[in-house]
Amino acid sequence: MYDFDIERPSRIADAVKLMSDSTDAQPLGGGQTLIPTLKQRLASPERLVSMAGIDEMVGICKDDAGRLCIGGATTHAAVAADGSYPGLSGLAARIGDPAVRNRGTIGGSLANNDPAACYPAAALGSGATIVTNKREIAADDYFRGMFDTALEEGEIITEVKFPIPEVSHYAKFVQPASRFALVGVFVAKFADGVRVAVTGASESGVHRWSAAEEALSRSFSAGSIGSLEAPSADGLITDLHGTGAYRAHLVKVMTGRAVAAAS
């Protein structure tokens, strides 16, 4: 690693100032992805601003609209234990491993937007709102492709607001080495329709599968997926662990399983 300073502010305002004071500052969530990246010297920030000590960014509550509001520095373990949005807690419980879940945060994961990460599927699949120190961003506008988001330089995810669907489930098919999602599908059924978000599969990162959403909005059953064509393999990832065609097939299978298991 190159050296840097670590700052541990206790208020969002201080964090924002520490970010803007430096020419090359980076927010530090749980560090579960950032630290391995730094070890490889793939990034050379001058300053890391840790979110862990900002109490107003840690915790889970419901807002007046009934949305589940999760502070940006809340760990995966805390979300997994919460249970008030079972599909989301179930997803959080399958990120990484227990020690990773004790450090990794929702804000860090969404800011990084790894194309095989789990949380982006939940945020997009729930139609969540990403709240930053500057603004609120709808999930549909937030994810811009692999490792790319709508976040601007120095912008910090302070909270994520999840509408709670009637039923939901995340079906994850793991890549055997990294245990990230080879394909992960988050299905959420709301009163006004169904959202299906797919992670792990596409070269453009997390995305919605509109054909499945339409079919499931008409009839929310695994059978609705069974009669669909698998999505096109164009633009899907081909690597050591699976071809685009295999991933396309898995998208369909995992969507069906998510629907079948949705509760």
Binding site: P176, A177, S178, R179, F180, D239, L240, H241
Partner: peptide, 16 residues
């Protein structure tokens, strides 16, 4: 080397 770390070289884990 495509499998140059535990991100791509799959080691058997307890649940395998």
């Amino acid at each position: 080397l495509l499998s140059g770390s535990y991100m791509d070289y799959a080691m058997p884990r307890a649940d395998d």
